[in-house]
């Protein structure tokens, strides 16, 4: 069973192979981590899967459907959602409102209909209830009505996770969610990841914090210089000579 399949995917930026012929598969109910040194092409890979960049070559399949040419905004309703490495929260909106934007695809009121306001109230109530569930799940109650971009950095990352969850994804791509978290928060994040997986969501995780990666991942893909260096379970990766060489000099495991 495969939910997402990345097949011979490449991205070239003016001669530079940012992602070079990478393939892997993601199963439902698993946490797959993508690790590698800075500049290995991890975030570019995310941008390819979520269609922010066009592929130079290769294909990406989601539930056996080729999404290599699907427009980015259509992915959320298909079941792919993500967070961003450089936080991309919406300015001027509170934490609650930011998370409610994640429920955009669950609403039906159109532009003109909204202006006359017949259904706004009931629809908003429903989205607000959903958003509050995510807030409780992630523990953002104290920041609900604060402007999202003014709350602590670590919490902003969690708002991104909550917003992504609001789309009810089948595959969730998280780009360094543990960056800027203290050790207590990291522990909470790990629990959260396992819980999300428990709800039947596949997670693709980019993370530098090896402790988190090794403890939650079912499988790991290692990237270096845009290429896939290795793939396997955490223990396989820890013993892989090539991986150790790529990380030489860095104390990772």
């Amino acid at each position: 069973m495969t939910i997402l399949k990345v097949q011979n995917v490449s991205k070239v930026f003016g001669g530079l192979h940012a992602v070079d012929n990478v393939s892997f598969e993601v199963k439902p109910n698993e946490i797959l981590s993508v690790i590698g040194p800075n500049g290995a092409g991890k975030t570019t890979l995310f941008n390819l899967i979520t269609r922010i960049y066009d592929l130079s070559s290769g294909n990406i399949y989601f539930q056996n459907q080729d999404i290599s040419k699907v427009e980015a905004y259509k992915l959320a309703s298909m079941g792919i959602s993500r967070t961003f490495q450089n936080i991309e929260l919406f300015e001027g909106l509170t934490t609650l409102e930011n998370i409610m934007v994640g429920g955009y695809i669950h609403g039906k009121c159109g532009f003109v209909e909204s202006m006359f306001g017949f259904r706004n109230r009931s629809e908003d109530k429903r989205l607000e209830k959903m958003a509050k569930e995510k807030i409780n799940l992630i523990g953002l109650q104290n920041y609900e009505h604060s402007e999202a971009l003014e709350i602590p950095y670590g919490r902003q990352r969690m708002v991104e996770v909550a917003r992504a969850l609001m789309t009810s994804p089948k595959v969730l791509l998280l780009d360094e969610p543990a960056a800027g978290l203290n050790s207590v928060e990291s522990e909470e994040l790990k629990k959260l990841l396992l819980r999300i997986r428990g709800d039947g969501v596949a997670i693709i995780l980019i993370e530098h914090d090896m402790e988190t990666v090794m403890s939650v991942s079912d499988r790991i893909v290692v990237m270096n210089h845009g290429q896939k260096l290795a793939e396997g379970t955490p223990s396989e990766i820890q013993q892989n000579q090539e991986v150790i060489k790529a990380y030489l000099g860095e104390e990772v495991f």
């Binding site: 922010i52 980015a72 905004y73 959320a76 959602s81 919406f90 955009y104 992504a164």
Partner: peptide, 9 residues
């Protein structure tokens, strides 16, 4: 970009 990721055209 985040807007698109949330399904907004």
């Amino acid at each position: 970009i985040a807007a698109k990721s949330m399904g907004i055209n």
